[in-house]
């Protein structure tokens, strides 16, 4: 009877492998070629691209900038999403309305919403600075100073993807069994202790999955950077994925951008594996 198990796994696995195998092998091969705007094709350039990559400080600083951006926005999304999920979990008027409302930003197309956000941050014509002036916080150089530009990119990411965390955590909350809560109540636990001893451990497994997926997605950030700042001012908001885009499709250095991507892929797989192991160890293991 267990032989049938392959009927389940293999169709998907084979389909995915078939679609992805050629692009992956091809990209590895391209990364050893000198394919650029003038010399298309799979010439053999040895490890030249990889040597160049290790000396490319712009790439490495873009990569560390990306880590900062991805980790911080994902954590903020997680905390906010968790808070929102807890708040509309129960005992709130019109909670079904708020639940739908909170989901909506995730439904929008990033490449289009970035343009809308750019008009919002526009320091001459946009609505944000007049609004901040009105509530005495004061307008800011949103897209023209390094720190604020970085913040602007973060704000858009948080706006768009907090709903992702919110949805997963809310669904998790709604499926929590009620017995532990009764037990906690009998023990006389307050809301804070109940949260840390019952609610949070109950959501640990979901949290790990959600954080991982968001880290993967957040690291690919491209449209928002492109539209809001094109990596500027200077290099203040240039992320690794944006840099790969510039090298690959703007400069058309196909070979070099393939090398950048393969390196990125390896780094990400290693980093995510470590992060996942750590999260499982600290969040999930403690609970069971």
């Amino acid at each position: 009877m267990y032989r049938q198990k392959y009927l389940f796994l293999l169709p998907g696995l084979i389909a995915l492998t078939a679609i992805i195998l050629f692009p992956l092998i091809f990209t590895i091969r391209v990364s050893f070629s000198g394919w650029d705007v003038y010399n298309p094709g799979l010439s053999w350039a040895g490890v030249k691209n990889y040597v160049r990559l290790f000396e490319d400080t712009r790439y490495w600083s873009a990569l560390s900038r990306l880590s900062l951006l991805a980790i911080s926005t994902v954590l903020i999304q997680y905390v906010l999403g968790f808070a929102l999920a807890l708040m509309v979990w129960k005992d709130v008027h019109a909670r079904r309305f708020f639940r739908v409302l909170f989901l909506v930003p995730m439904m929008t197309t990033p490449v289009i919403m970035s343009v809308i956000w750019r008009t919002i941050f526009h320091e001459s014509l946009g609505p944000l600075n007049p609004l901040l002036d009105a509530i005495v916080l004061g307008g800011q150089p949103w897209l023209s100073s390094p720190g604020w530009a970085f913040a602007a990119v973060m704000i858009v990411e948080i706006w768009q993807w907090t709903p992702f965390m919110f949805l997963l955590l809310l669904a998790g909350l709604l499926s929590l069994p009620s017995e532990p809560y009764l037990a906690a109540k009998i023990d006389g636990a307050g809301p804070v202790r109940t949260f840390f001893s019952v609610t949070f451990p109950g959501l640990a497994a979901i949290s790990v999955g959600a954080l991982l997926i968001r880290l993967i997605e957040a690291s690919k950030i491209l449209d928002t950077v492109y539209v809001l700042t094109s990596g500027g001012p200077g290099e203040a908001t240039e992320t690794a994925s944006y840099y790969i885009y510039i090298r690959g499709l703007r400069d058309f250095q196909i070979g070099y951008s393939a090398a950048l991507s393969i390196t990125y892929l390896v780094i990400m797989i290693v980093a995510l594996t470590i992060i996942a192991k750590l999260m499982v160890r600290f969040l999930v293991k403690g609970q069971s």
Partner: peptide, 13 residues
């Protein structure tokens, strides 16, 4: 992990 690869580089393959 299939989602990790930046899409840019998959364009040509």
């Amino acid at each position: 992990s299939q989602r990790i690869m930046p899409p840019i580089v998959l364009a040509i393959p």
